Computed example of a mutant assay.
Amino acid sequence: MSEPPIAVPTDTTIKQTRSLRSDIVFTFALALGLYLAWVVRDVLVLLYVSALFAVVLMPVVNGIMKLRIGGWKPGRGIAILILLLAVGGFATLFFVFALPPVMRDLREFFNELPTRGPELLSRIRHVPFMQRVNVSVLNTKLQDFATNFATYLLLSIRDWATKLFYVVAGIVLTIYFMLEGEAAYHWVLSFFPVDMRQRLDVALARAERRMGKWLLGQASLMLILGLSSTIVFLALHVRYAYALGVLMGVFNIVPIAGAVITVSLAILVAAIDSWTRVLGVAIFYAIYAQVETSFLTPRIMRSSVDLPGIAIIVALLLGAAFDGIIGAMVAVPTAVLVTVLLDEYAVQPEPIISAPHPVTEVQA
């Protein structure tokens, strides 16, 4: 009896086996990479935000580099240093001269809140639709809040210290990205094939120009809120109107959330003197929030970064849902980047079909 023939693996079988092994290894490597990215997601977000702010601030640095004093022209390092000194000097002046009086009066307000609380709450009874409010319950809540406010601040020191560390680390990373970002950028591009690399470089350069204009649009929104709030605070005779107006304008770099935080501070300052001023500040911000969300932000940002108004609002909502205040801050530049990449690689332009020429009748 003859033995059965031995099956010899063909080249096709070997290639299929190698392909199957490669797919399995790639799947496990992708799963491991996603898991590691999730573990270090905070660091990745910090790197992304720092790189994004470096891109956004580079037009300012380039503008400083174009300055000439006699025959001297600042380099990139000196331009970044000038920018940091300008921001640091402004912040120092504000914290030294404007903020201490506000904090002193707020501290006195919280100390007097248990005794002044009933007086403030009694005024609520004169506000329309507020006659049914249980004043005793609100008075108890205010007293508990005043009693536990210091405890809350003490317990939150650890969280604030962690956030402060991330802020300092983000500033340092942003400076390094502005100084050495081009080398890192070309290193990342080197992983792509040459033809794809050139196309990606052109698309990212286009995104950088549009993202740089975002800072101009955001600065316009900050200036509008700062000036309008200062005028309203002066008209209402709110204490420290100039300081609160500057604070509202600066914090408006965080869309929606920054203004909410500062208007809460303005309401507390107004509550020191008059309940009518509190109501005036609240009405002003309620009107301004509607105007900014529905009119100013879509139009200013559309002219700056060339995005539809609905795209800007959706980007802000998604950014805030993804990472809170930081997500809202970088939502619009990120939307610009995503839009440019989608236009380059995903959106297929419609073919231009020329209209047929009219057929002229040939006369016999």
Results as ranks from 00 to 15, higher is better:
P4K: 00
V8M: 05
P9N: 03
R18A: 08
S19V: 02
T27P: 02
F28K: 09
A29H: 05
L30N: 06
Y35K: 10
L36R: 09
V43N: 02
L46R: 06
Y48G: 02
S50K: 06
S50F: 03
A54F: 00
P59F: 07
V60C: 06
I69R: 13
K73R: 15
I78Q: 05
I80Y: 04
L81K: 02
L84I: 13
L84G: 06
F95V: 12
F97W: 13
A98G: 02
L99R: 04
P100H: 01
R107I: 11
N111H: 03
T115K: 11
G117V: 02
S122G: 15
H126R: 12
Q131P: 00
R132W: 08
S136T: 14
L138S: 00
K141S: 13
F145Y: 15
Y152C: 01
I157C: 06
I157Q: 13
W160D: 12
T162K: 12
L164D: 06
V167Q: 08
V172A: 15
I175P: 07
Y176D: 09
M178R: 05
L179P: 06
V194D: 12
R199S: 13
L200R: 04
L200A: 01
R206V: 06
R209M: 07
L216D: 10
G217L: 01
Q218S: 12
L221D: 01
M222S: 11
M222C: 15
I224W: 00
I231C: 12
V232M: 15
A235M: 14
L236A: 13
Y240C: 01
L244P: 04
M248V: 14
M248I: 14
V263G: 04
A266T: 12
I267G: 11
L268H: 04
S274I: 04
V278S: 07
G280S: 08
Y285C: 02
I287R: 04
T293I: 14
S294W: 14
F295N: 05
F295M: 14
S303L: 14
D306T: 09
G309K: 03
I312K: 04
A315P: 05
A321T: 09
G324E: 11
A328R: 02
V330R: 10
A331P: 00
A335Q: 15
T339Q: 12
D343H: 14
V347S: 08
I352G: 05
A355W: 05
P356G: 07
V359Q: 12
A364V: 08
